[in-house]
Amino acid sequence: MKEYIIWLVFFLSTAVFAQNPDPDRILSKVDQNISARNRVSEAEMVIHGRHADRTVKSISWIKGTETAFTEYLAPPREKGTKMLKQKDNLWTYFPRTDRTVLIAGHLLHQSVMGSDLSYSDLMEDPKLQNLYTAEILGEETLINRRCWILELVATKKEISYYKRKIWVDKERFIVLKENRYALSGRLIKTTDVKKIENIDGRWVPVKVVFKDQLKSGKGTEFNLISIKFNDNIPDYVFTKANLKK
């Protein structure tokens, strides 16, 4: 009987939750889905230029939310370039010149490799719960998935994007679309997930298009080639010395 009551409570609460979801909980589950102790991912970024398109390949080691190390693998011009993010600092190593350069201040607003992404976009805390309060606006279907539409409002003045709108898969708690807005409400950047996969029990976006909405152009595509969660990553990976190796 006791067991029956527990299951009943569970199902009821799930049903209740499904009817009246708590937006903060949704956000929390979204953050949980993407967070891991660490991950190693290999990805491609396709940047559209006026002459031709460029595909930049990279491999990244990410620890928590504040530390990341990325090495660029292709094309030849980019190969060997490395980036180290530690909290609010971002260093880039250029093998051609054997130089480690600090990207700080105004430079953080520059575009990464000519893409629609800026360095400050890379630097921001990926955990939305730390930055925003949420409200559910409604529901919509995207790539055949039912989604909640959440409106997020920044909790601090220092956060770059005052408002965001995210479409969260109701079952998988993965963001399938994101709009970032300026203070005036003007749409600045969009992220559209074109394809997701289940890897290691997590739903992971494997094809994403990132677009600066103020500029004309096709935006920047991200294709995830592989990802491993909670791997064994030695600490020395996240050091400046590793930039030069």
């Binding site: 002459h51 031709a52 460029r54 011009r77 880039t92 250029f94 051609r96 010149t97 130089r99 350069v101």
Partner: peptide, 16 residues
Amino acid sequence: ATLISSTMYGSQTTEN
């Protein structure tokens, strides 16, 4: 001195 710039195709580039 190191110059950090962009190539005509948008790649980041440096030279000493």
